[in-house]
Design a binder for these strands. Structure first.
Lengths: 336, 336
DNA sequence: CGGCAATGCCGGAACGATCCGGCATCCGGC
DNA sequence: GCCGGATGCCGGATCGTTCCGGCATTGCCG
């Protein structure tokens, strides 16, 4: 009784029967494997289409020992940060293009000794130095890719940009525009990126014999905290004539603070951000920033991880990520 | 040659062999099914633990005709909105607690006629009235839950809050505080929520014989657009003495605009938001807002969907979501 | 002491797709 | 006319888990 044919999803056997061929031939026809005549192939495809056949991914996974899913983890403290959202979306888009699914891995999911999700590989976005979830994921024997990862206990793929060069380019630019005492509102060195930015800033200052003017705030701080940090720095170091803003979005409040104090941003004082943000185009003045190309970064992570999973890349392959400074009025003056 | 025992993951057969029992008994012991002596159970658990046994989820899915994964979709225009991030995270946490995975479904994933990911059910967050992806997901014969969904072509679960009551409470509160001409900066009626808020505002105005003062901006607009909208409204309707801000985060710029114009927020003019935001606690003054409890909303969606998938709830079950107004200084005055 | 139920355990079968090897058939070349 | 190879198709077998039914063994009760 094929009564419930409409109820149960069609299988490859249903397709084969409808096309008058065997399982194997139907499968071969649809996958383009084996030797199948053009005629048969067309018939099978027609049958599959009319039956609305959709291969059962569990069965396929079982046979292929593969899930068709990648996991992506970002520390929960980061979830409010625009940059990571963009990164996750870039990853999702690339994954969609490659017809694979993406599962988000929260801290909770791994915290309680629970089973890790069924994935072929994992992406860690800017793993915190001491993140327990990241450690557990590292301990898993799975292909793994980090975006700006710190050195790991085992071989992992890495997508990484030349932040040192970008920070230097920005600092050189500020100097060109007349700044002699650029300050840094920094993110903490708990991530690889945070550490490298601080180091690049210190190195640049050392080369020029400039005393670093740096203040630090944790990731995910409220914007009020950044405003307070900027004020604090300005009181302690009145000579500061340029601001490098590390935390995503912090340049907005820094500009506010400076304008409150009667400084002319882009002229009297320069402001630049280390993490570009859509809002920086609309601020007054628009803010010069390093475009970290988060969408491209997310996509690159997916591609690298897929290559590693498929054996097309070494488990410890590194992929460079191009980034670029976007020059805007906040460092170019009113005439922009 | 069990040489590669270390290479290949342990299966239930390996566990059974190690414990000196059969497949079935090992499985029963681990799952707590069937009849197994305490002794045997302990032995199996020990074997599983030493072998690092982890059930193959593909095999389990195949057998159970279930994926252990739920999908969640939100329109890409919404991805920058704080509220949705919180919602997604609430959903992820609940999912983690229930030991199921969550796959994000992007527009791209379904747009190109690609196969939808293998999931047991789908959550739609505030589906746009004409979202093609939402329509395709609706067309799928899968359990589906919407957060504030519009009436659908088939039975879907709904998680929904009483926005009408909340808007009324807020408007009554503004009136109590002396406002006679409250304006609404509205989100468009393309979502269920947007439409209901507008309707509630109009109804309240009609009851009191007040001429509505409303201006609308699309979802995901830049904050500059909201500022411009507020200015525009103030020019057109100078009598406005209270502002209801719909779009997430828009109250920040509205407060700015009002203060620029020399109005005393919380005193001279009242401001309230329809979507609470962490930033509203730190603004000056803090902004009264409706707490839509997004994390609870996300968790409720997961729970409802799971109940529907498991047959514990009707496919068209409705779950109320409690929301509440958070009163702050922007409507209470400086002394507030 | 016979009958019957409970207990503990196990062997096949099934889920759906894929792959390996094999079996006809047909054709061209010598 | 026969052989070798190419072509088109198919039947098991497999992936790892779970479930249904069944088989001894034990113990209890009348």
């Amino acid at each position: 009784m094929p009564d419930r044919a409409s109820t149960r999803a069609a299988t490859i056997v249903d397709v084969a029967r409808a096309a008058g061929v065997s399982r194997t031939t139907a499968s071969d026809a649809l996958r383009g494997h084996g030797r199948v005549s053009q005629e048969t192939r067309t018939a099978v495809e027609a049958a599959a289409s009319t039956l609305g056949y959709r291969p059962n991914s569990a069965a396929r996974s079982l046979r292929a020992a593969t899930t068709g899913t990648l996991g992506i983890h970002l520390p929960e403290a980061m979830t409010r940060i625009e940059y990571y959202l963009q990164t996750v979306y870039g990853a999702l888009e690339q994954a969609a293009a490659d017809e694979i699914d993406v599962t988000l891995i929260t801290s909770r999911r791994l915290a309680g000794g629970q089973a890790p999700p069924a994935v072929d590989g994992v992406i860690l976005l800017d793993p915190l130095a001491d993140d327990p979830v990241a450690e557990r994921l590292l301990a898993l024997e799975q292909p793994l890719v980090t975006l700006e990862g710190a050195p790991a206990s085992r071989s992992v793929g890495v997508v990484s940009a030349d932040h040192e060069a970008a920070v230097r380019e920005l600092l050189d630019h500020l100097a060109d525009r007349g700044a002699v005492a650029p300050a840094l509102l920094a993110s903490p060195a708990v991530t690889d990126w945070g550490g490298r930015v601080q180091a690049a800033y210190r190195a640049w200052c050392a080369e020029r014999g400039i005393e670093p003017a740096m203040v630090e705030r944790p990731f995910g701080s409220e914007s009020g905290a950044y405003a307070a940090a900027a004020r604090e720095l300005l009181v302690a170091r009145p000579e500061v004539d340029a601001f490098l803003c590390g935390p995503d979005g912090s340049a907005i409040v820094v500009v506010d603070v400076l304008q409150d104090l009667g400084r002319e941003v882009g002229d009297d004082v320069l402001v630049a951000a280390l993490v570009d943000n859509p809002a920086y185009v609309y601020t007054d003045p628009p803010v010069t920033a390093i475009d970290l190309t988060p969408r491209a970064a997310g996509a690159a992570c997916i591609r690298l991880l897929l290559d590693i999973v498929r054996g097309d890349a070494a488990a410890d392959a590194e992929v460079p990520l191009p980034i670029a400074v976007r020059y805007r009025a906040s460092t170019l003056g009113a005439a922009g």
